[in-house]
Structures are given as C-alpha cells and as structure tokens.
C-alpha cells in the first residue's frame, strides 16, 4: 500500500519540527511516504463545518479526490484532518444522494469522487508497525514516565474512526512501552484538552487544560505525548497561561509521539529540532541519556 502525507495546516505552518520527526521516523521504518500537492485545509472539523456542512464536505471530498487520482492512500499527521477526511468518506459512502450532490459541486472543477482512498492517522500506521519499531529501538527511554494524550479526534466518533477503544484507548501506551518508556495511567486520559473551546471562550478552554494537567501531575508524569497538533499547541503553549490564571506551576515538556520514537531510534535532539520547543526538553534528554 502506498501512502502520501496529508500534513494539514498547523504542522507545516507552525510546527515543522513535528513534521521532521514524523518524516524521519517513517524513513527509519523503511516506509516510503510521498508528498501530494494542491490540497487545502481539510477543513477543520471544529471550524468550517460548523459554519456550513456542505462546504466542509465539498472541500474534504476535493482533498480525497487528489489522493485518489494519484492512486495513493492518505497518511495524516493530524487528528483533526484524519477525522474530517474519514468522516467525509463515511458520509458519502453511506448516502448516495449526498455523494451525487457533492459530485455535482466537484464537477465545477472537473473532479469526481469515487471512494477508493484509505485514510489513516499516522499513529495507527505506527501501531501497525509496532514490531519493527521494537526492533529499531537503539536507546530505550528507560524510566521515562509519559502521559499519553490520545485526544478526541484520534478516537471518536468510533463508528467513523474505527480505531482503538474510544473510551479505553491503548494504542499510544503500547507504543510508549515499545520504546522502553513507562506509560502513565491518569484519570482524565480520554478527556478533551480544551483547544477547540478557545475559539469561543478562552477561560473555559484553559480550565479544561488545567483539569488535564492536574490529573497528569497527580499520576506523576515526567512529560506529555500527543498525536495531534491542536492538542500539542494547547499543552505546549498554554501551560503558562494556566499558571498565570490559577497560580500553578505546570511546566511539562510536550512531545509528539514521533519525537519520542525518533529519540529512541537514536536520533539526536538537533536532527529533529527539539530546540524549537517552548517548554525546554533538556531535563528529559538528560534523563534518557
């Protein structure tokens, strides 16, 4: 099966170092993942679709078409994009009339959606290759306590996502174990980080983040592992805001799971751009060296 990357907007436009770690990880696993030109915003499942469902379907279907035309499947680096692309595919598969309606819109740009494209979240592809990950580990991240944050759109709605358990997810923790680290069990693991609420109420968004951070802290974690750029930004950039609002002192280093895997594969901090992190990662690097 051949894959091409769907990078989305946030990763290439704001967090390119996360992209670097993902590309290097897949390279190391011996997987050739191509690049696709011309795709647009997925569009954001928490944004554009809330304004007009039809436009969301049409833009999403156009993106699916591009990959379909080049006979490749989608490897998405973002949970939001994954959910949109999977949900659009699901909706058009379920409802032929809707598919015809969307195709009549796509016709205006000379495209037609057929339905022959698979969409996968990068963490799913990693999990499917967990045995070769284990084999490639050079520097197990021994004694590192990692709180995984699956995030919402990696899991739910399960009828559409068809991946992992929506309420008791295990894939990320198994990946963390595979690289020799200790997954941390914490009570709010499946809760939302609060990022989408920032669009309507920043204070509530920060309270949601604070609830998560507290739960992680109580469980004694050293750092946080994410698989979605929206969640990543919420944890990485907004811990400070929580501290300001609530007089707390959260300062957890936040990683994309591909960064941790790259480190365990023996790549160095420079190669994957760890210096771009806002919350410094030095202590973690020391701990695992």
């Amino acid at each position: 099966m051949t894959y091409k990357y769907f990078l989305g907007c946030v990763i290439p436009g704001r967090l390119p170092y996360l992209e670097a770690s993902a590309r290097k990880t897949f390279e190391k696993l011996g997987m050739k993942v191509g690049d696709q030109a011309n795709y647009s915003c997925c569009p954001d499942p928490t944004g554009a679709g809330q304004l007009d469902h039809l436009t969301w379907l049409a833009l999403g279907a156009r993106n699916l078409c591009l990959f379909e035309e080049s006979n490749s499947n989608i490897l998405s680096l973002c949970s939001g994009c994954t959910e949109t692309l999977k949900a659009v595919k699901y909706s058009l598969e379920k409802d032929n009339k809707l598919k015809e309606e969307i195709n009549s819109k796509l016709n205006s740009i000379g495209k037609k959606y057929k339905g022959n494209v698979e969409v996968k979240h990068f963490a799913q592809v990693l999990y499917e290759n967990i045995d070769s990950i284990k084999k490639k580990v050079k520097k197990p991240l021994k004694d590192l306590k990692v709180a995984s944050h699956p995030g919402c759109h990696y899991l739910r709605p399960s009828e559409i996502m068809q991946w992992d358990d929506p309420l008791v997810p295990k894939t990320l923790d198994e990946l963390i174990e595979a690289i020799g680290a200790d997954p941390v069990d914490y009570s709010l693991k499946i809760d939302c980080c609060g990022n989408p609420v920032e669009k309507s109420n920043k204070d509530i968004s920060l309270l949601m983040l604070e609830n998560k951070l507290k739960s992680m802290k109580d469980a004694g974690t050293d750092c946080i592992a994410c698989v979605c750029p929206a969640c990543y930004q919420q944890f990485e950039f907004n811990q400070k805001e929580v501290n300001k609002n609530s007089n707390t002192n959260y300062n957890f280093p936040v990683f994309y799971i591909t960064e941790l895997i790259a480190l365990a594969f023996g790549m160095n901090a420079e190669e994957i751009g760890l210096k771009y992190h806002r919350v410094k990662t030095d202590e973690i690097l020391q701990k695992i060296s």
């Binding site: 928490t46 809330q50 919402c152 739910r156 709605p157 309420l167 989408p196 609420v197 109420n201 509530i204």
Partner: peptide, 15 residues
C-alpha cells in the same frame, strides 16, 4: 446555552 462552547470531543455521542 451557548452552543459554540461545544468542543466537539464526541464523548456525548459515544456515551
């Protein structure tokens, strides 16, 4: 209530 506050986390849909 302010419907724009929903984070679309899909927990309600799941449960």
């Amino acid at each position: 209530p302010n419907i724009w506050l929903c984070s679309t986390c899909q927990m309600c849909v799941e449960e």
